[in-house]
């Protein structure tokens, strides 16, 4: 069996760890969101929420923990969405031609890039969870070790599927466009509504109906909701809303994200088979 994807993966990871300044700043960014945005907002929100009557026997989750899940989702969204840009540089200034001229199949190229994206997303997720726990993000509160491991496995699986979906999307755009400027604007166009019409940073329960509907279909909401299910439990209150997650809800998250990733995979395969060098 050809190990072509392994070579692509090896190359991506070498470059990920090589440039320390890029590496460190990309890791610090989500931590800063958590530290600055998280702290300032949570103080204000928690002050308001304290005024609300609590639901008996249901634990209340602070804003920092609520948005922690959203920060993971947002960070993974941005790194995968912009992850495809490297492909464009590869096409214009680097090795893509050499790779495409080799005997490895295009599916292997996509697989290698996808796996490297997932690895990077795992590193980010891990760091956010560890740092978050240090500053008071209550992930896995009251879980046993086994429960924590299962929950973490669930989170990482969702993150992996989500990352692949957006990386395929971004790779398809990158391979189809000529100029990095075009890519930047297309991605900005995508990322703004994705972030704000979702439940990543605040609940979507009070959205106008249309936006609420969009938010339900938004992969970012599916991921943030899924992470909350695993990290915060199935029954809690946050931001004045009472959340009860059922198996159906988490099933919808998995199914929705998988469907999204598969559609993006076929888009990527289609664009990649068209690419001419």
């Amino acid at each position: 069996m050809s190990m072509g994807f392994g070579a692509v993966y090896w190359r991506e990871m070498i470059k990920f760890f090589r440039f320390k300044s890029v590496l460190i700043s990309s890791l610090i960014q989500p931590v800063m969101w958590l530290a600055f945005f998280g702290f300032s907002m949570s103080k204000s929100f928690d002050k308001l929420i304290d005024l609300l009557p609590s639901v008996p026997d249901v634990p209340n989750v602070g804003y920092l923990s609520y948005m922690g899940a959203g920060i993971i989702a947002m960070d993974v969204l941005f790194s995968s969405l912009f992850g495809g840009i490297t492909l464009m540089f590869d096409k214009n200034f680097s090795l893509l031609k050499e790779t495409l001229a080799s005997p490895i199949s295009r599916a292997h190229i996509i697989l290698g890039i996808g796996l490297s994206g997932v690895t990077k997303a795992f590193i980010h997720t891990f760091i956010i969870i560890i740092f978050g726990r240090m500053v008071g993000m209550e992930f896995f509160k009251g879980y046993t070790l086994t429960q924590t491991l299962i929950a973490a496995a669930g989170i990482f699986t969702l993150v992996a599927i989500f990352t692949l979906g957006f990386l395929f999307l971004s790779g398809s755009i990158a391979i189809s466009l000529k100029h990095p400027e075009g890519m930047q604007s297309v991605l900005s166009l995508f990322s703004m509504p994705l972030l704000f019409i979702s439940n990543a940073l605040y609940p979507s329960e009070a959205f106008p109906t249309a936006l609420r509907f969009i938010s339900m279909l938004n992969p970012l909401s599916l991921l943030a909701g899924g992470i909350r299910y695993f990290a915060l439990g199935t029954n809690f209150t946050a931001m004045g809303n009472h959340y009860v997650y059922t198996t159906t809800d988490i099933g919808v998250s998995f199914f929705g994200l998988t469907l999204f990733a598969l559609v993006m995979l076929s888009a990527a395969l289609w664009r990649f088979n068209k690419v001419d060098v």
Partner: peptide
Amino acid sequence: LDYEMTAWENMEYHGKI
């Protein structure tokens, strides 16, 4: 060539693919 890889790595990559 991949300018961000070393001479050796560029060759190693080729051998791998």
